[in-house]
Computed example of a mutant assay.
Amino acid sequence: MSERRVHGFTCSPDRLWGLVGSGQDPAEVLGDAARDAVADLDHHLRRSGSGLTTAGLARDVLAGRPAEEHADDLARLLVPVLASVGAPAGDPGVIWLQDTMFLDWEPVLEELGLGALAASWGVADVAWPWPRGTRPRAHWPVVTELAPGAPAAVAAEFGRQTASGEPRWSEMLAGLDDDAFVDDDGDPVDDPEDVREELAEHLDRLAGWVAGTPEGCSLFLVTDGDL
């Protein structure tokens, strides 16, 4: 089955961009907390036949010389880097997209009163390791930053309750018509009930992620997997 994964991390953006050109030792930056993520990225790089390694990519970034031809894999480097210098957004710190992989999330989130999340979900707006605020160089994966203050705004939307004390978004999701669930091409999804159930699980996890993002930190979302 095709699937995508969304890794969530919290980190100070100044700490993250401060690594670029810092001259630090890759072995120190990619510590024990990043061991599994380093192994996963090295496995991907071996299968791609690129000849690259996680340590080599990190060395280039820390030396301040990232290569644009490696932009996609440098975006993937964010997972082990953030695992080391940041913190997982939750436990677990990953969301697996299967039935919702090709769902057009934005109109559904708008319907649920989650407009702040709708404006950010799936938006590629992180240029790291190039200067913050410049255009992202990577095509895939997609890296999204909810900058300091934004997670709290999303958390406030998730926190709205019904008169019975239930999350408002959850009650609205249960009542959405099946035709609200369409794919990126605007076609109806194959099984709207499976999509509804999976989406409820993902949104519940995202609610925890934004609520748990420390003040002054960004929430970074790295979406990778099948195109």
Rank of each mutant, 00 (worst) to 15 (best):
R59P: 02
H70K: 10
R47I: 10
R65V: 15
D73P: 01
H43K: 02
P66R: 12
G56V: 00
G51H: 02
A39G: 10
L78M: 14
A67Q: 12
L74Q: 07
V81S: 03
A58S: 15
L78P: 11
L78T: 13
A63V: 00
V38H: 12
R59E: 15
L57Q: 10
A67D: 15
A55S: 10
V79N: 05
L57P: 05
D73M: 06
G51S: 09
A55R: 15
L82E: 12
G49P: 12
G49S: 08
L62A: 07
V85C: 11
H44E: 15
L78I: 08
S84Q: 09
G56Q: 09
R65D: 06
A83Q: 07
V85A: 14
V85F: 09
A58Y: 01
L45I: 01
A63Y: 00
G64N: 10
E69W: 00
A75Q: 04
H43M: 04
L52S: 04
V61F: 02
L41R: 06
R46M: 08
R65P: 00
G51T: 11
H70M: 07
L78S: 12
L52C: 08
A55T: 15
S84T: 10
L77I: 03
A58C: 10
R47Y: 02
T53P: 03
L82K: 04
H43D: 14
L74V: 01
S48P: 02
D40M: 12
S84N: 08
L41S: 05
L62K: 07
S50L: 08
L78H: 05
A87D: 13
L82T: 05
L62W: 10
S48H: 05
V61T: 11
D60I: 00
R46V: 06
V79A: 08
V38D: 01
H44W: 14
G51F: 04
A39D: 14
G51N: 06
A58M: 09
V79M: 02
